[in-house]
């Protein structure tokens, strides 16, 4: 699998043969389809005892150019969930605006009703969308856009709590493929961060035994490995911890205790020793 967002959603040459671009010559049918332009790299997240830790660096690349170094790719929804965005930044911004509208609509329903006085949990808010609901919604949105051949070129991680108050972590990509797991990572992170996180949380039970400190430590370690190895990454990143108390988001973290000593020992592509 190729982890660059540019590769997502493109036909494989080894399956389809080299791409025939001749139809691009002129006119032709309208194509709403795009390819990503300014992109964000990995998002990593892991569940723990009381919630979820999620992180993404603050870089938006233009191809190999580190174009914007202060782009926040974690977004808080209704103060209870976090969405992390990998892939195209303009599509991320569109989704951000869209989620804002959704949050506003949802808050209109938040008026306390007469029955809220006699209900079991008075004035708790009128059915706020939790992370599990948001995940379903975003999956439908992404899948619809792929059906229209006008995909949003992103892979999203959704972190928060479900209806039972248990930690929820899930992913949706540009084709509407959705799944959940004790730990998740998009892009390069799927190859570099996911093995590290799976060592600490191979199963739901193992994740439910992790403490907050451990989970944050694992995510920080992942961000460091990604910065060492992913050429489209940055050492400034955002990290959020989602619990039932709410979201603690830090958007200007610096990678600490870096050591590039290993770099001197690298020769060739791994097998070379001289």
């Amino acid at each position: 699998m190729d982890h660059r967002p540019q590769a997502w959603g493109r036909p494989r040459d080894d399956v389809y043969g080299a791409y025939d671009g001749s139809y691009l010559q002129s006119g032709g049918p309208k194509t709403a389809t795009q390819s990503p332009v300014v992109t964000g790299t990995s998002v990593v997240a892991i569940k723990y005892k009381d919630g979820v830790v999620i992180a993404a660096d603050n870089l938006a690349s233009y191809g190999s150019l580190a174009r914007f170094t202060d782009v926040k790719r974690l977004r808080v929804f209704l103060g209870t969930s976090v969405v992390g965005f990998g892939g195209d930044v303009s599509d991320m911004q569109w989704l951000d605006r869209h989620l804002n509208e959704l949050a506003i609509d949802e808050s209109y329903d938040d008026e306390p009703s007469p029955s809220s006085l006699l209900s079991a949990s008075p004035n708790k808010g009128h059915g706020k969308l939790n992370a599990a609901n948001l995940h379903v919604y975003l999956q439908k949105l992404m899948y619809r856009r792929r059906n229209d051949f006008d995909p949003l070129w992103n892979q999203l991680l959704i972190a928060g709590l479900d209806a039972a108050g248990k930690p929820h972590l899930s992913s949706v990509d540009l084709r509407g493929t959705a799944f959940t797991s004790p730990s998740l990572a998009t892009g390069f992170g799927a190859a570099l961060a996911q093995p590290i996180m799976r060592r600490h949380a191979p199963t739901e039970e193992a994740a439910a035994a992790l403490t907050r400190e451990e989970a944050v430590g694992v995510v920080q370690e992942c961000m460091k490995v990604l910065y060492y190895r992913d050429a489209r990454s940055l050492d400034r990143y955002s990290i959020a911890v989602v619990t039932k108390e709410g979201v603690e988001l830090k958007e200007d973290e610096q990678l600490e205790r870096q050591s590039w000593a290993f770099a001197e020992r690298i020769k060739g592509y791994g097998t070379q020793t001289v």
Binding site: S115, S119, G125, H126, A163
Partner: peptide, 8 residues
């Protein structure tokens, strides 16, 4: 019923 409890 919904998250808020029973309604009429």
């Amino acid at each position: 019923v919904d998250e808020q409890g029973p309604h009429l």
